[in-house]
Every structure is written in C-alpha cells, then in structure tokens.
Design a protein around this nucleic acid. Structure first.
Ligand SMILES: [Mn+2]
Ligand SMILES: [Mn+2]
Ligand SMILES: [Zn+2]
Ligand SMILES: [Zn+2]
Lengths: 135, 135
DNA sequence: TTCTAGTTTATAATAATTCTAAAGTAAAAA
DNA sequence: TTTTTACTTTAGAATTATTATAAACTAGAA
C-alpha cells in the first residue's frame, strides 16, 4: 500500500485527509498483515511514534469513521475495552483471556457441519466461532 | 427447586444466606428454564417485585459471587453492559444485535467438522459459536 | 484569497462498574 | 442466651471507557 491508497481510502469514505487521519490510516492500513487493537493501544502508538498531537476524541472519531466506512470491524471480547480489527472479512478468532490476545482464523479453517435454523422470522447474518485458549 | 436448594447452593458457595442473596438466588435459580440478564434488568425486577431493598453494589457483589462459585456464566456481546447467563453448561447463542436478544443453542445442535489446532504451547479451552441474526 | 463545511481539541458529561468505610447481621464462641 | 467475630449491605465516591460539546482550526470549494 502507498500513501495514494490511503488518501483514496479516506476520500472514498467521505473523510478529508487531515494530518491525524492520514497518520492513523497509515498505521492501521500500510502493512501486510491485519491486526487487532484498542483505542488505548492505538493512542499509545500514536503519541510515541508521531510528531503531531491527537486528542483522544479524534482517535475515537476516526476509528468510528473507518468502521462506518467499512475499513474496520469490531470484535466482541469479554472486558470493558472495545477491540477493533483491520481484518474486515468474515473470520473467526482464537482468544486467550489471560493475555487478552486475539488471533485470526481464516473462514476456510473452520467447517461447520450442523447448525440450527434461525428462530421465528429471523435470518442468519453470519456465524462467528470463538476458540478460547488456555495454557 | 425448593428453598432448601437455594440455601444449600449459597452455603456450598461459602455465602451466608442473607435476605438479599436468597431473594436474588430465588429469582435466578427457582425456575425451569435458564435465562440471560444484566445487572440492570435484575435490579429492575428486584426493586419491582421484592419487599426488601437492594443497593446496586449488593447486586453486583452477589452476581459476581455466584459467578465465582460457578452458578452463573458471562456472555460476551457487543455493547457496554455485561450479560450473565444462568445456563452454565457449554452452549452456543443466537444473537440479535438489534434487540440485544440472546437465545441459547444446545451444544448438541452445532457440529463442527474442522477446526484449526491451537497455536504454540496453548490448548483449546472451549469453542463458542455465535450466530448473529437479522430480520 | 475568501468562505464554508468539516475537523480537531480540551474539557465536561455519561454510563457501567468498582471501591470505600461505616453501619448492620449471621453464625460461632462463650 | 449473650457476646463476639467475621462477613455483608449500603450510600456514596471513585474509576474507566466512551461520547458529547462548543470553540478554535483547516481543507478544499468558490
Ligand atoms: Mn462504538
Ligand atoms: Mn465482572
Ligand atoms: Zn480478527
Ligand atoms: Zn446462554
């Protein structure tokens, strides 16, 4: 990925490429592998590795804007903090509750043979598998 | 279930059967089907249907004590509130994010054919399946 | 360059949960 | 039965993650 893609990604999401958004987008999307993060971990990185300042509200705003634009997804894990995911494909997770570590599992690595049908007038949106780990 | 069981359940968990704990335990466990609740929904019920008073901290304390004793489990769902479950068996869930409704799926209703092996020195504790619903 | 809508920022507000320490109570000890 | 003890409840304060506010700032259109 190049800076041009970042700008395109922002523009196509209706987001002006401000200094802060470009910095955040570069950190989140200019890499080979997807990853999981919290607003706190993102802030830690930004304040350490970036010259410009980031109000916490800006980080929240930007992350939510990316999520709304479909560039980020959210993962439900126990605990107070919200986890975001730069992997926006349908996939599953290993979860180590002791370290709060999330590891992606590609959709193809899980095969489900039998599943109940959705209740009443409802439909299945997607199926998520969490594999909880211990040591 | 009778009141005796409630008292036994409390005692065996190292919990003195106080007025508050007995009331909460009766509401949670004296029924045929398991269910899901939040501290808020539990408080609403208690203040409506019980004569004695419940400090919010007592409800939190009691619910956590029951969880620690293994009488309750916790379910991870998106959102700020913690959901508890009187079903303490391994099982799966339908989840309707629009209504925040959780519906149990018995373990036998889901059959998984293929699953990746746990990373490095870790072991699989359990596998949870979430089926997200839409209308 | 000027204008405007969108953006960042510091700070306040909110919401769920946990902490505190004083007052109350179940059950053991006397 | 009374006393004693440790456990419990309670109101309110504190904490934590997140969202709201409204003033100052800025990208991009005009
Ligand atoms: Mn959110
Ligand atoms: Mn908890
Ligand atoms: Zn992921
Ligand atoms: Zn359940």
């Amino acid at each position: 990925m190049k800076k041009v893609d970042i700008l395109k990604k922002l523009r196509s999401s209706g987001l002006r490429p401000t200094k802060q958004r470009v910095e955040i987008a570069k950190f989140l999307f200019e890499r080979d592998k997807t990853f999981h993060f919290t607003v706190e971990s993102l802030e830690n990185h930004l304040t350490k590795k970036s010259t410009c300042k980031f109000a916490l509200a800006t980080i929240y705003n930007t992350v939510h804007a990316f999520k709304k634009a479909g560039h980020l997804s959210e993962v439900d894990v126990r605990g107070k903090k919200t986890y975001f995911d730069t992997n926006i494909t349908n996939h599953h997770h290993f979860y180590d509750s002791e370290t709060s570590e999330l590891i992606d599992i590609d959709e193809s690595e899980v095969v489900i043979q039998k599943i109940p049908k959705a209740p009443n007038g409802k439909k299945i949106k997607n199926v998520e598998v969490f594999i909880n780990l211990k040591n």
